[in-house]
Design a binder for these strands. Structure first.
Lengths: 191, 191
DNA sequence: GACGTATACCTAACAGTGTTAGGCAGGCGT
DNA sequence: ACGCCTGCCTAACACTGTTAGGTATACGTC
């Protein structure tokens, strides 16, 4: 029977993280303070230290949650025999994941916070998530490391341009399908 | 004969910007304080306000300088008849520009600083620089807006992955040539 | 060449930041 | 029922960007 206290503690941790995510989405990844998070959950700033060792520890927990969500997103893509179909679905899923929360994307994919680096555990989760992405591509015969790297660069490039240069629009979203075709023409000319 | 004072003023402005660039490269785009910049040029922090209205104004001047440098980089690419040669040269030049100073790239290409947006003038320079890039691609027949957008996404994607996931290495740098081939196979199959 | 002023600096201070120290009340396991 | 650990608090630290106000000097003008 797990500690009542421990469960309450965990619940409050999640509440704090939810408030931090909301502020990050509203004001940018680094555009919020611990006082604001504390206000949102009805505490004073120093009390947050009961739950996290530092602001960077909050970022680390967010990093971990973010990759967890990405893992679920990748796993939610329906498997398909046809390479073109699968590749398009995975690309769209990743693109949507990236664009739907730019603050999260900055945290997961760009080194934006001065001095912050993910903990060993969080980094391991990130590694496993990207490995999983590689497996999905492998399932349709995309298994050369260079091909996976190229695919990653292409899709993150599209999503990043969308966020930076046409937020809310679809100028780069429309290029997903052509990009997939272009990629397949090179990597899997048979299909 | 232009004001002695005005010239001295301009020289000090440049000195401050140089110090800010150095700190940004060493500690990250947002990892430095006005006190540190002031120290580097032998002043106290408030004196910087003689030269810049705010820290964001320093970022704005850096933004402007950065795009100036990018413009020069693009212009320095030797013109070539062969599309493959030119495309490879432009891609390499841009890739090197991006990778050689990740802090600058964050400032120019990603919206990383909370609350900061470039001034009208700086943004105009950015627009003209990217327009110029489009002209270079146009010179070898790449003139469909979608093709330019796709090329931009591809090259920034490669550079960004290189910086984030293999700093100092060449894991994505080696993919420039294959990417150019892949791109050309789609956009200019005749060549 | 002396004069008056705008300029280039300064110190002091303010509100806000992340963080630490220390204290108190109460819910929990024994 | 007792005692302790947990969850919160206030006060305070060093640091951040920024403003107010003062002073000396280098400059353009006469």
């Amino acid at each position: 029977m797990p500690d009542r206290r421990a469960r309450r503690h965990e619940a409050t941790r999640r509440e704090i993280l939810a408030a931090a995510w909301q502020l990050a989405r509203e004001r940018g990844l680094t555009g919020w303070s611990l006082r604001e998070v504390a206000d949102a959950v009805g505490m004073r700033a120093p009390s947050l230290y009961v739950y996290f060792d530092s602001k960077d520890a909050i970022y680390d927990a967010m990093f971990s949650q973010g990759y967890q969500q990405l893992l679920e997103t990748v796993d939610a893509v329906p498997s398909a025999e046809d390479p073109r179909t699968l590749l398009r679905d995975v690309a769209s899923a990743f693109f949507d994941f990236y664009v739907s929360d730019p603050a999260r994307s900055q945290l997961l994919f760009l080194r934006v916070i001065p001095g912050f680096a993910p903990s060993e555990d969080s980094y391991e989760l990130a590694r496993r998530t990207l490995e999983r992405l590689g497996e999905v591509l492998g399932s349709i015969g995309i298994d050369r490391p260079e091909a996976v790297d190229l695919w990653t660069a292409m899709v993150t490039g599209l999503a990043s341009q969308q966020v930076s240069n046409d937020p809310g629009g679809d100028r780069w979203a429309r290029l997903i399908e052509p990009s997939v075709d272009m990629f397949l023409a090179r990597e899997s000319p048979a299909a």
